[in-house]
């Protein structure tokens, strides 16, 4: 029965993730005074890519890249409780946030290797930018996480969630704003939307890592992105918005957080790589550091 719920959970997150991607395109278009594609356009795109006759491969790592990527995305999702119901707390896992953070890299590394085997310099350039961005936003993110760990005196995600029980004022977004601010700014980098869409930068490096991918490869990558993106939002809901008692609650909270990078991206133009690193290691990290010191002194 657990397996059935697990598969249903993954499919649910996938469908919701693709929906958000489509909705994002629509909202962006409306803000830019365009009509935009229909909300369901991404479902059609993925279906089209999966069924495409022509697929081009550059070698074994190129083939395995999307498999790594999807494994990392689904694996991450399975370690994050979707809702506080028995069925959606997969594997009864109440382990460690550090495990989740390191599993999140699994898929990205595989994808990076695939892009490298594509032999397109734009792809490698994009990956080098993506990894630089990862190093940049990881600092404010880990500062936020450490403050939460200090408050809950635990690295367990379920313990961090249970510390936020008893009303929304107990959510860490309100209880620990000096942890939430750097972490939410780091979220902008994690999502890779403007102003931090440096790795793909279509006008500069021809979509970077994706340059060589088409057909089923691109379809898999879009699917993985949908799951991974939603998993990260779910993680943030668990960390800062007190988790969710049921799936509906989670859908709503994820939607709220999802709007944040979307709207920021619509307003700001793209940073340069060095500007992005300076930005993340600047004010957000400083806020996190102040939060850490204040919490420490308490």
């Amino acid at each position: 029965m657990n397996i059935v719920w697990t598969v249903l959970g993954i499919i649910g997150v996938y469908i919701y993730g693709v929906f958000l991607m489509g909705l994002g395109r629509k909202i962006s278009a409306r803000v830019q005074l365009r009509y935009g594609p229909p909300v369901y356009q991404n479902y059609i795109d993925i279906l089209k890519l999966w069924t495409k006759k022509t697929n081009i491969s550059h070698g074994i790592m190129f083939d395995l890249g999307p498999v790594f990527l999807l494994t990392g995305s689904i694996g991450t999702l399975l370690l994050i409780p979707i809702a506080a119901t028995e069925q959606l707390m997969y594997f009864g896992f109440s382990g460690d946030i550090i495990v989740i953070m390191y599993l999140m890299v699994f898929g990205s590394l595989g994808f990076a290797l695939a892009a490298s085997q594509g032999a397109n310099p734009f792809g490698i350039m994009g990956i080098s930018r993506a990894l630089t961005l990862l190093a940049a936003y990881e600092l404010p993110f880990i500062l936020g996480i450490v403050i939460l760990m200090m408050d809950a005196n635990s690295a367990s995600l379920s313990n961090i969630i249970s510390h936020q029980a008893g009303g929304y004022m107990n959510w860490y977004i309100f209880k620990q704003p000096l942890a939430a601010i750097p972490a939410f700014i780091a979220l902008l980098g994690m999502m890779g939307k403007q102003p931090f869409d440096i790795p793909i930068a279509p006008q500069e490096i021809a979509t970077g890592p994706m340059a060589e991918f088409g057909g089923k490869y691109l379809g898999m990558m879009m699917s993985s992105h949908a799951i991974f993106m939603t998993a990260k939002y779910i993680l943030f809901v668990n960390l800062f918005l007190g988790g969710a008692g049921n799936p509906i609650n989670m859908i709503f909270k994820v939607f709220l957080i999802w709007l944040f990078p979307l709207f920021v991206g619509l307003v700001y133009p793209r940073f340069k790589t060095s500007q992005a690193v300076r930005f993340f290691w600047g004010v957000p990290s400083l806020i996190g550091l102040i939060g850490l010191i204040i919490h420490w002194l308490r």
């Binding site: 495409k52 022509t54 697929n55 081009i56 491969s57 550059h58 057909g215």
Partner: peptide
């Protein structure tokens, strides 16, 4: 299971 790619 999915369609085989063409090596280039």
């Amino acid at each position: 299971l999915m369609r085989k790619p063409r090596k280039v």
